[in-house]
Design a protein around this nucleic acid. Structure first.
Length: 354
DNA sequence: GGATTCGGACCGTCAAATAC
DNA sequence: TATTTGACGGTCCGAATCCA
């Protein structure tokens, strides 16, 4: 469940701490970014209080990714979008539960009101979890080395939204700005004087110091302040959609990092960070990261036979009958956990009831 | 074409297993 | 004792199907 918790933590953190980014150039990162104390904030604004710092790249900031030894930015697959986590109510009313429909916290719930059966909108009785079930030995996750290390849940959650992008196999470690512009060329925005050489070894904390930012999506280079984007470049058009950006090198707990304001990011064991830094990124897959696989081709595998578990054809329900049944079911189950009378589906729990 | 059904993916919780 | 793991018990999405 750790992964679940991690995902939840990420969702919560994201929900509660989304800095007020403003548009910068063609895009602004939707994640916190550490600041470089030696680098002035845009517009001369004071630095936010460390250590939880954010800002968008100041005008003229260059995107130094990727460092040597790290793969080039790979455009995220179209399907690698952020998944909106489904929110469940703690306890659906019996009517909604039987109908497998969304319920809400209120009683009567919206659905019961809609069907005119608010009086039957009551919580069911949650079955008690079985106890004393013996389990086999647990498979402990490998905590040392590898990309699937069990790092801090917060850290892993960090990457839930910005899941790693596939690593290109061509071994090209340079990030190529768009339109054939070589990285660091005159056309690209110059790096500020305060920009340290890249990549510096991770400091004692195990993460790289700021300011490092993700590169913009392919085809996007923040134009120098006061200058229009290169004609014909994507910058010159509409702002790009928010996309997952480049995955930072392992051990770097900079962007994106979500967490409570004022709470420093988790740090990695320096030895491990160095190992990962020198051995290359585990970019292609982190099992802790929730990746959105390409949607499976639609099939007809969901053909239902309208046959109950006992092999008997299920009785059809008319609209009224369904509502009535829901009502009767609810009134019949409020006093106990026996769900044997509920309609065919929705009773995987029946298995354990015997 | 809208309403209904329900398979199964997804979610939250928590006891057992394990680490410290 | 604290943490991690894995599965239970549940919710509800969305395709299939029904029906006016």
């Amino acid at each position: 469940m750790a992964s679940d918790q991690a995902k939840n933590a990420g969702a919560v953190a994201q929900e509660h701490h989304m800095p007020p980014y403003q548009a910068y150039g063609a895009y602004s990162p939707p994640f916190p970014v550490y600041y470089d104390p030696s680098h002035p904030e845009p517009n001369g604004a004071p630095h936010p209080a460390p250590p939880y710092i954010y800002h968008h790249p100041p005008p003229g900031m260059m995107y130094p990714y990727p460092p040597p030894g790290f793969p080039p930015y790979a455009p995220p697959p179209q399907t690698n979008f952020q998944r909106v986590k489904r929110k469940q109510v703690k306890m659906a009313c019996t009517n909604c539960a039987n109908a497998c429909k969304r319920c809400d916290e209120h009683r009567p719930c919206e659905r019961c009101v809609k069907y005119g059966i608010p009086e039957t909108c009551v919580d069911g009785v949650r079955k008690e979890r079985q106890k004393g079930i013996k389990r086999g030995p647990y498979k402990r996750k490998n905590k040392s080395g590898g990309s699937d290390t069990a790092t801090s849940p917060t850290h892993n959650a960090t990457f839930e939204t910005f899941s790693s992008t596939p690593t290109e196999a061509n071994g090209d470690s340079a990030w190529h700005p768009p339109n054939g512009v070589a990285q660091g060329s005159a056309t690209a925005t110059p790096a500020p004087a305060s920009m340290p050489s890249f990549p510096p070894p991770p400091p004692e904390g195990g993460y790289y110091p700021p300011p490092y930012f993700y590169p913009p999506p392919p085809g996007f280079v923040p134009p120098p302040e006061g200058q229009a984007p290169v004609e014909g470049s994507p910058n010159s058009g509409a702002p790009p959609p928010m996309m997952p950006y480049y995955m930072p090198p392992p051990g770097y707990y900079g962007p994106p990092y979500y967490g409570p304001p004022g709470v420093p990011p988790p740090t990695m064991d320096p030895a491990q960070a160095e190992l990962q830094r020198t051995s290359g990124p585990p970019v292609d897959h982190d099992p802790e990261v929730e990746e959105i696989p390409p949607p499976a081709p639609k099939t007809n595998s969901k053909k239902r036979s309208r046959v109950g578990k006992d092999g008997q054809p299920k009785a059809k329900k008319t609209k009224v009958a369904a509502v009535v049944q829901e009502s009767s079911t609810s009134s019949g189950t409020t006093g106990g956990s026996d769900q044997a009378s509920e309609p065919g589906h929705g009773s995987p729990t029946e298995i354990g009831d015997a």
